[in-house]
Design a protein around this nucleic acid. Sequence first.
RNA 1: GGAGAGAUGGCAGAGUGGUUGAAUGCGGCGGUCUUGAAAACCGUUAAGGAUGCAAGUCCUUCCGGGGUUCGAAUCCCUGUCUCUCCGCCA
Length: 425
Amino acid sequence: MLDIKFIRENPEAVKQGVENKNEKDRVDELLEIDQRRRDIIIHADELKSRRNQASAQIPQMKKSGQDVSGVLAEMKRVSDEIAGLDSSLRNLETELENLLMYIPNLPHSSVPVGKSAEDNVEVRKWYPDNFSLDEKEKMLDHIELGKKLRILDFERGAKISGSGFPLYIGRGATLERALINFMLDYHLQNHGYSEVFPPFLVNRDSMKGTGQIPKMEEDMYHIEKDELFPIPTAEVPITNIYRNDIINESELPIKYVGYSACFRREAGSYGKESKGFLRVHQFNKVEMVKFVKPETSYDELEKLVGDAEDILRALKIPYRVLLLCTGDLSFSAAKCYDIETWSPAENRWLEASSCSNFENFQARRANIRFRNEATKKPEFVHTLNGSGLATSRLMVSILENYQTAEGKIIVPEVLQKYTGFNIIE
RNA sequence: GGAGAGAUGGCAGAGUGGUUGAAUGCGGCGGUCUUGAAAACCGUUAAGGAUGCAAGUCCUUCCGGGGUUCGAAUCCCUGUCUCUCCGCCA
């Protein structure tokens, strides 16, 4: 969330940012409640100060044998009034908090203003040698390939759980596992991350901390009996590792990489977009999360994107990098790059990674701070995360790009030592 | 799942109704001493909020929430978590 003081002092900038993100502007409403809240605090604090004085006075008066009944009666009235003020204060603060939770992060000044995905800016693209987007002979899509080679079974996945829960079989399952292990090892060995293996179910505070709740609550699975949420991304448990902590400045930057299954309800999205791997309720993802000092976060964002790109270059998968415009930026992000991989059968780009700088938006919600060694004061860290990468969309690109004329799949070279085989037929 | 114990500052650990934001020890920081360091000694060492140009002043906070009271770290209720024992279990 944003700092209420910042909103108070820069209402116009906040309104502009909210508008550019296509979010509802409730800034004036918020400021009005903030003003009422502060008025009550001033009044209540005066009364509490009086009560504290009396608390010190009463035992002394008793000791010297004075009659305290008058003070007691007065304090009774004061305490009742304080109780009333505190109660309305609590209500206002809840209201304020709720409004604040729905104000998105503001886009960074380097983010292009735009309405929708149409306005995203392509930053760069990369093709392996001898690659052309016009190659049309590879016509089987990943669903047909999966069925023909008996490596993916979407129908049985649907029987077991429901649509959108893919079942990997045989070499398909091995390939998936190889991909996850390859990506983890690559980031650990080449990019300086530490490995984490997080819980897949988290509590409400964690979901709030990273910003999935309250705005996206409808898209989250929710286990009511235990008040737990299956994670939509490892970003949630990993970022929350330091919730309510103060980190030593010398420990920054902290860089974690971890695998998790990801669960998304994807409420209301059906139709052709949802076939096969294109939109699923459960998928696998290797996630990178960074905790950094504020002044370094934009450099760290560029490195983060580069780390994800390295995986695709090693796999020799064609991709492009998009800088998202304000209108396409997610609620919590200040700046975000998407990486899309090429699907020859779909004849289009598929989002396989999203790398974002949240600045201190998540840190403020989750109360993640570091101690500034110069000032000795705690400050909010900046958090970033990026997929490195999601396997589902990536698997589409791998299967389709690596298919032979006979409909077999060559295993990408870097994965062969993980799979133990080099062809799926 | 059953029974019991506990949660206090960076850490350890006192504190069972009244100047307790909290003894004491350790750690950290500053200083004295020293050629330097150690030791010793002295001082200092929380976070959040309101207000103010600032210095400052005031308020809140002893796991979370509610209650009793003029007054709660301290008493009552409740939630969460941790530990011990029993049961179950990969």
